[in-house]
Design a protein around this nucleic acid. Structure first.
Lengths: 151, 151
DNA sequence: CGATATTGCTCAGTATGCTGACTATCAGTA
DNA sequence: TACTGATAGTCAGCATACTGAGCAATATCG
């Protein structure tokens, strides 16, 4: 019988598991308590001031029901602000705070270090190739999850 | 600024997200309600009759606290049995039931189909290369997560 | 203009996955 | 044998992720 541990789905889960652990360890050592998801949201809000939650979700491929809690926690930590949109009273506009900007700046080195660590078993060329193949597979499967990437 | 969507950690999360969605869709279409985690546990229990929870966790790289709930649900569904070990009264021996065996047999085609679908954007050679690189990166990072693989 | 559809967001419920703590048991050793 | 440490399992708590439902507001179209 084929080894279950050697199927693409299992490798995907395992790589993600290690990636999250490395991220949390690096960021934690830098003195911050931020998850990968929270970091991605924070960075995207900074790069797109005033965006609404659905747009944010699309930009980083989160489910819209997941984003609610993530934003709650970022607001709780004082890193972003959520306020009602004037143009569309259903929507909330998201804005990074000064404290959020400071945190993002200080965390960035730890995040970059984490990316290196999770690829440490590969040569630079292999790392590039892995990323290329992941991008390609992801692009082909984008519509298969409930939370596809939206440009 | 570097695109956050293009970092290894984000690609890992995204690929895993798609892999799970594809798995659930395929298995669901086959008429079963089983998660990737539950499937891996079930298949491993079948291949290693009478194993205990910690060993199972090590074989598929789950956290031991996660396994408790997974096993609860497999028992609930009647696919496995959990009973006290006679040699070690702390441990529980896990055994697949006849119904579990039947389910596993019927689900297998859907699982294999799912693996193909999640690689559908890649050529056969690229798929192999992706898996090789993932295996290599995972092997190097095995000890970095709380739930490493144990042979 | 008014009925209908769509959209932005939230919530309840379920399932991973983790940290940290706890109990019961076992193993090794003084 | 009593002490000490390690191990198997569980639990509470928190943070993703998803399904499906629902509410309020907006868009669309006859």
């Amino acid at each position: 019988m084929k080894d279950n541990n050697d199927m693409p789905g299992h490798l995907a889960r395992r790589f993600q598991q290690i990636a999250v652990a490395v991220f949390l360890a690096e960021v934690g050592e830098a003195g911050f308590d931020l998850t990968p998801v929270q970091y991605a949201a924070l960075a995207t809000i900074k790069a797109n001031p005033g965006l609404d939650q659905v747009t944010l979700a699309g930009l980083i491929a989160y489910d819209r029901t997941t984003i609610t809690g993530v934003i709650d926690r970022l607001v709780q930590k004082g890193l972003i602000e959520r306020r009602a949109s004037s143009r569309d009273r259903r929507a909330r506009e998201l804005e990074i705070t000064d404290e959020g900007r400071r945190a993002l700046r200080k965390i960035t080195p730890a995040v970059e270090s984490a990316q290196r660590i999770m690829l440490r078993g590969l040569s630079a060329k292999e790392g590039e190739e892995l990323m290329r193949l992941l991008r390609k597979a992801i692009a082909a499967g984008n519509e298969l999850s409930r939370a596809p990437l939206r440009e």
